[in-house]
C-alpha cells in the first residue's frame, strides 16, 4: 500500500507544471524515504530529477517500493482541477493498475476522487554521480527566467561564462547578438534577491536556449535558483523546495566544432 498526503495542492501543481512540458511520461519511484522521478526529454539532451521526501508530506506510507508509470500530462491536468488549498492524497495498491487521487477542501465539505491508469514506462535510468562543479551561481529565479526568455528572442544557444567578476549570458543569432552580465551582489537585505557567485575555475559553456527557457519556468518553486557548471559535465539547475526536496534539471552542453 502506498499513500501520500500533501496538505496543500499548490505545491504539487507547481511541481507538475515545472516538469510536464519537458517530460511526457515517467516512473514515480515510491519507497519508504519518499517519491523520486528521473526522466529525460524526448531528445535525450536534458533530464529532470525530482525528489519528494517522505517527511515533506503530511502523511506518508509506503509498505513496499513501487514504480508508478504515469503520463505526466494526464496527472498535471487532474491535479490542476484541485483548489490550491485542497489537501491531496495519492494512493496505490501494491499490485494496482491505477493511481488514486483524493482532493479534500479545507472546510471538508467537498471531496473529489480520481483515478489515473498506470502505464508501463520503459525509461532508462541514468547513474548520475555527484559532480564537483567549477562554478555555482545562485540568483533570483525570476531573473533567470527573464534572462533566458530575453535571449531566446535572438539565438538558439546561450553561452554562460563565469568568472569571479560575474556571470555573462550571451547569444548570437541571424538577426544580431546580445549579452547580459550579472555581478555578485555586494550587500543585499533580502538573501533571496542576491546573486552569489562561487568560482573554483572560470568556465564558459554553451547550452540550447530552449531548454534553459523550459527549466526557468520552475520559478514558482523557489525565489532562488542555483546553476552549477563544470568542465565536462552537464549543467545542473536546481530549485530547492524547503523540507519537501528538490527539482533538478540536467542539460548536456553544446560543443563547438
Amino acid at each position: 500500500m502506498f499513500e501520500a498526503r500533501v496538505a496543500q495542492a499548490e505545491i504539487l501543481k507547481k511541481i507538475l507544471d515545472s516538469v510536464r512540458e519537458l517530460v511526457e511520461q515517467g516512473n514515480l519511484d515510491c519507497s519508504g524515504t519518499g517519491i523520486s522521478l528521473q526522466a529525460m526529454d524526448s531528445s535525450h539532451v536534458s533530464l529532470v530529477a525530482l525528489l519528494l521526501k517522505s517527511e515533506g508530506f503530511e502523511r506518508y506510507r509506503c509498505d513496499r517500493s513501487i514504480n508508478l508509470g504515469i503520463n505526466m500530462q494526464s496527472l498535471g491536468k487532474i491535479v490542476k482541477t484541485a483548489g490550491n488549498h485542497d489537501a491531496i492524497t495519492l494512493s496505490s495498491e501494491d499490485k494496482g493498475d491505477v493511481l488514486g487521487l483524493m482532493f479534500e477542501s479545507t472546510e471538508q465539505d467537498k471531496v473529489s476522487n480520481y483515478e489515473i491508469k498506470l502505464m508501463d514506462v520503459d525509461a532508462e535510468q541514468l547513474a548520475i554521480p555527484v559532480a564537483e562543479y567549477s562554478v555555482c551561481v545562485r540568483m533570483p529565479s525570476a531573473e533567470f527566467a527573464r534572462i533566458t526568455r530575453d535571449l531566446s528572442t535572438i539565438g538558439d544557444s546561450v553561452l554562460i561564462s563565469c568568472t569571479k567578476d560575474g556571470v555573462q549570458f550571451s547569444t548570437t543569432g541571424d538577426t544580431g547578438s546580445g549579452s547580459i552580465v550579472l555581478r555578485q551582489s555586494s550587500s543585499v537585505d533580502d538573501e533571496k534577491k542576491a546573486v552569489v557567485i562561487e568560482v573554483q575555475e572560470p568556465i564558459s559553456l554553451s547550452f540550447a536556449t530552449k531548454f534553459l527557457v523550459q527549466f526557468s519556468k520552475s520559478a514558482a518553486l523557489n525565489e532562488s535558483v542555483t546553476l552549477n557548471l563544470g568542465d565536462g559535465v552537464p549543467l545542473m539547475v536546481e530549485y530547492p523546495m524547503k523540507e519537501m526536496g528538490y527539482v533538478r534539471f540536467y542539460l548536456a552542453p553544446k560543443l563547438s566544432n
Binding site: 529525460m40 535525450h44 539532451v45 536534458s46 533530464l47 532508462e124 535510468q125 541514468l126 547513474a127 548520475i128 554521480p129 544557444s157 554553451s206 540550447a208 565536462g232 559535465v233 552537464p234 540536467y250 542539460l251 548536456a252 552542453p253 553544446k254 560543443l255 563547438s256 566544432n257
Partner: peptide
C-alpha cells in the same frame, strides 16, 4: 555552429 551532445555521453545507464 555548436554540436549538441547527448546526455547519455556523460551518464551511464543503470
Amino acid at each position: 555552429p555548436a554540436n549538441q551532445i547527448a546526455l547519455i555521453t556523460f551518464y551511464q545507464g543503470q
